[in-house]
């Protein structure tokens, strides 16, 4: 496993300030002031579906308010890792794990931690947009309704704020109470992003959010991701190498359930250290 210190580093490595000394290429964005370089700490993490082990000893630190891309061929475990971060895998019968995932130094597996509370801190956007068969407005405020918020002004303010953040407000402000199912695929995906941030999460998990979209809709989502990272920590699974190159600050490459290499995206895509990474990003396998 090859990991560039310090932004993405193996568990137990001493944390040091982010430095790109020796490179004339800056990362997509400099580290925001006060950002935690180890917001999510994945430590010696193994994951099993029954007896079948799909992740092996994954150790990875994910920095706050950056975009981290998880790449690798189908079946490499990247989506399983993504779904581990908000404990969505708990819903799968027979699934179990070893090792730990910590967010702000607190284990997400702590028995005292409420899973619902954890998931409120982590928004998720899926490969296929999944608006509810409700109005645009009700889709966005749904997480607040579930949380018991009834005050109209709060709901309206949240709907506008989230739709603006998802770059959808201008397109839908005059039809907020029409069905969300009438939106285009790209608009539906942005609506799902608006819904994902309604609870003001810290982290946004995205599982191939553009794979069903055309290039124009993809470009809008990518632009949105670059804006959202000012406030949120984004972890994205993508099969599109060019997309990872365009939007992510850091990239982690997985193969057969193992983390093979991680580092600043510009380095992974111009000069990977590991031959398997090189072969994958150049399309020689996978």
């Amino acid at each position: 496993m090859e990991i560039d210190p310090p932004a993405l580093q193996s568990a137990g490595s001493p944390a040091t300030p982010v430095s790109l000394t020796g490179s004339r290429v800056q990362s997509v964005a400099p580290t925001p002031a006060g950002a935690n370089p180890r917001l999510i700490q994945i430590e010696a993490y193994d994951f099993f579906y029954g007896n079948h082990q799909v992740l092996h000893q994954v150790s990875l630190d994910i920095p706050e308010r950056h975009v981290t891309a998880l790449i690798g061929p189908s079946g490499c475990g990247k989506t399983t890792l993504l779904r581990s971060i908000n404990r969505m895998n708990d819903l799968i019968e027979g699934a179990h794990h070893r090792g730990d995932i910590r967010i702000r130094d607190q284990s997400i597996f702590d028995p005292h931690l409420e899973v619902i509370a954890l998931r409120k801190r982590i928004g998720m956007v899926f490969q296929k947009s999944n608006p509810f068969p409700k109005s645009i407005f009700e889709n966005v405020v749904y997480p607040l309704r579930v949380a018991g918020v009834r005050q109209r002004s709060i709901l309206e303010e949240t709907a506008e704020r989230c739709l603006r953040a998802a770059a959808l407000w201008d397109e839908v402000k005059d039809r907020l109470h029409t069905s969300a199912l009438g939106l285009s695929g790209g608009q539906q995906q942005r609506l799902c992003i608006a819904r994902a941030i309604a609870n003001e999460p810290e982290i946004l998990l995205m599982d191939e959010p553009c794979s069903a979209l055309d290039p124009v809709a993809t470009a809008r989502i990518e632009e949105l991701i670059l804006e959202l990272k000012q406030r949120y920590t984004i972890v994205i699974v993508t099969h599109n190498m060019q997309q990872a190159a365009r939007i992510s600050d850091y990239t982690a490459f997985f193969y057969l359930g193992r983390l093979i290499e991680a580092g600043p995206t510009h380095r992974i895509f111009t000069s990977p250290k590991n031959k398997q990474t090189e072969d994958y990003v150049t399309g020689r396998f996978g």
Partner: peptide
């Protein structure tokens, strides 16, 4: 065709 890594170099 968006080459990467050694191809890009």
């Amino acid at each position: 065709k968006a080459p990467l890594a050694r191809d890009l170099r």
